[in-house]
């Protein structure tokens, strides 16, 4: 696609569509592990915005810091410095109780390993977050989710009686049941065969397009990333660029470009505003 663009780092924050309010923002977000010689910058002053109502993929090679970024944005891990905002809430400033409430009400998670509770049925798994929060399930929304995700016939099954794809769809329903502002998905297709993977990705995209949700997905699979509206590339703990309306080829090319940037002259290469993609 012609519109697919590899945008240099310094433009990343401004790349959002002008009409969309950012659902999630990172400002100078930094995470370091260890001390002294052994110190590792997992994230090094990251500034990035994620728009509401869009499906964004965070991509990068192993150890690039993409998972760390997601953990910090979701309030699962504490930042060394900098801020992460969910809407107008500074997630990095919240205590455990507030974070728990935030995870209940405003954030949903989809895991690589599905992480369903084996002793509960699909329906019980889906409604669990609402119950933990002490709320009551919005039946209409539940029906919408179940229909959209094609789980109507599977509600009474336990996870062990479901295929991987079905389990992940239950997990997506669970992530969406509380109508969170953002759903974070961590390698949601990592444990699925390609057909089930496609299925899950389509559902994630449908939940954005048809149900108006915001999804941020971490993946290292260019094909998966291509389902997103936008791909944020990350390398060495920094935002290395982004691709709008990606295709697998564009993502691959972007990754290749990243690899070529992994050099002492990274700054210059980024300056060039390299066009990557077909």
């Amino acid at each position: 696609m012609d519109t697919t663009v590899f945008v240099p780092v310094d433009d990343a924050t401004g790349a959002a569509a002008p009409d969309a309010t950012p659902a999630v923002r990172a400002r100078a977000l930094t995470k370091t592990y260890g001390r002294g010689q052994a110190q590792v910058h997992a994230l090094d002053g990251v500034d990035v915005d994620f728009d509401a109502g869009r499906f964004t993929a965070i991509m990068g090679p192993s150890g690039s810091g993409k998972s760390t970024l997601m953990h910090l944005l979701a309030g699962l891990d504490s930042a060394t410095s900098g801020q992460a905002f969910l809407g107008s809430t500074d997630v990095t400033a919240l205590g455990d109780k507030a974070l728990t409430r935030l995870r209940r009400d405003r954030v949903g998670f989809v895991f690589q390993q599905f992480n369903l509770l084996p002793m509960f049925t699909a329906e019980q798994n889906i409604t669990l977050p609402v119950e933990l929060a002490g709320g009551s399930v919005d039946r209409a929304w539940f029906d919408t989710l179940v229909t959209t995700l094609g789980l109507s016939q599977r509600l009474t099954h336990r996870p062990s009686e479901l295929s991987g794809g079905q389990q992940q769809r239950v997990a997506i329903a669970r992530a969406l049941i509380a109508q969170p502002e953002v759903v974070f998905a961590d390698e949601p297709t990592g444990n699925l065969d390609s057909r089930a993977g496609v299925e899950v990705l389509s559902f994630l995209r449908r939940s954005v397009r048809e149900l108006g949700r915001t999804v941020i997905m971490v993946t290292h699979d260019p094909t998966a990333a291509a389902y997103a509206d936008r791909v944020v590339l990350i390398a060495d703990g920094r935002i290395a660029g982004e691709i709008s309306d990606p295709t697998p080829e564009a993502v691959l090319a972007g990754l290749d470009a990243l690899r070529s940037l992994e050099a002492p002259v990274a700054g210059t290469a980024a300056d060039g505003g390299t066009r990557a993609g077909a």
Binding site: K97, T100, R101, R103, P129, L132
Partner: peptide, 16 residues
């Protein structure tokens, strides 16, 4: 372990 972590991630408080 993983399950406890999942529950925490989907909103189970420490007290719960």
């Amino acid at each position: 372990r993983r399950e406890s972590a999942t529950l925490r991630a989907i909103g189970l408080s420490r007290a719960q």
